[in-house]
Amino acid sequence: MEINFKGKKALVTGAGKGIGRSVAKKLVELGADTVALSRTQSDLDSLKQEVPGITTVQCDLSDWDQTREIVGNIDNIDLLVNNAGVAALDKFLDVKKQDIDWCFDINYKAVFNVAQVVAKSMVARKSGGSIVNVSSTASLQGLEDHAVYCCTKAAVDKLTKVMALELGQYKIRVNCINPTVVMTPMGKRVWSDPARADPMIARIPFGRFVEVDEVVDSIMFLLSDKASVIHGVLLPVEGGLLTS
């Protein structure tokens, strides 16, 4: 199945590291005029060295007004991947207000903010488009130490459903991808302890966590015309974890 994004312009948030970086690189490979957005300029600089044809934009997504200005100045976006995310892990009884604020600012409010700006432009241009929000299986199950993270991702899932309901009339497809633990540098760091990882892996019929390319390929499909009538879907990428 060939996917080609020639003639399309894409925006990827959280593109400096991990899944977002790989998504941005794959979009360029498939022909999209790609804008990579990240808070960390050094990550963007190294990405630009690897992929000279990519456009990089520095932005702190926790700043609502700055984000709206920066994203609003990126013209003619056809494809949006809301990937940026953070995790503050702690026992429910020990979670601090600043952890809740930080996670919701990035994991939920920034998704809402960026998508609203981009969707308004798509509507005004009558161009249609495709939006993929990156959530997690953590939205669909309870995980120890993940009280805040689980809630932010559940909010993204529900936002995806409402966006799909309201934006479908404008030919804007909105979907969500829900991977389990992905072997990004952050994933490896958080889940490197066998005491934490082994019980989770034991619940996955495939017996392993997810590789970055497996998530990227799923996102490319949802963005593409190959998924032309797939809309409002929460797509688990988890090796069967949710069957247990």
Rank of each mutant, 00 (worst) to 15 (best):
E2G: 00
I3Q: 11
N4Q: 10
L11G: 06
G14E: 08
I19W: 04
A24K: 08
A24F: 05
V28W: 03
G31C: 01
V35N: 02
L37T: 09
S38E: 07
S38N: 08
Q41V: 03
S46A: 14
L47A: 09
K48T: 12
Q49V: 12
T56V: 14
D63M: 02
W64T: 11
D65P: 03
Q66E: 15
T67H: 08
I70G: 01
I70M: 01
D78V: 06
D78S: 11
L79D: 09
G85D: 10
D94A: 12
K97N: 12
D99C: 03
D99Y: 13
D99H: 14
I100M: 09
D101Q: 10
D105W: 03
I106W: 06
N107G: 11
N107V: 07
N113L: 07
V114M: 07
A119F: 01
R125N: 09
S127D: 02
G128M: 07
G128L: 05
G129H: 04
I131E: 05
I131S: 03
N133T: 01
V134H: 02
S136I: 01
A138L: 04
E144R: 14
H146I: 03
A147Y: 08
V148E: 01
Y149T: 01
K153F: 13
A154W: 05
V156E: 09
D157F: 02
D157N: 15
K158V: 07
V162S: 10
L167M: 12
Y170P: 00
R173S: 11
C176W: 00
N178G: 06
T180V: 15
M186E: 14
K188R: 15
K188P: 00
G207H: 11
F209Q: 10
D213Q: 15
E214H: 12
V215W: 07
V216E: 12
V216G: 10
D217T: 12
S218A: 15
K226C: 05
H231I: 05
L235K: 00
V237Q: 07
G240R: 08
T243C: 06
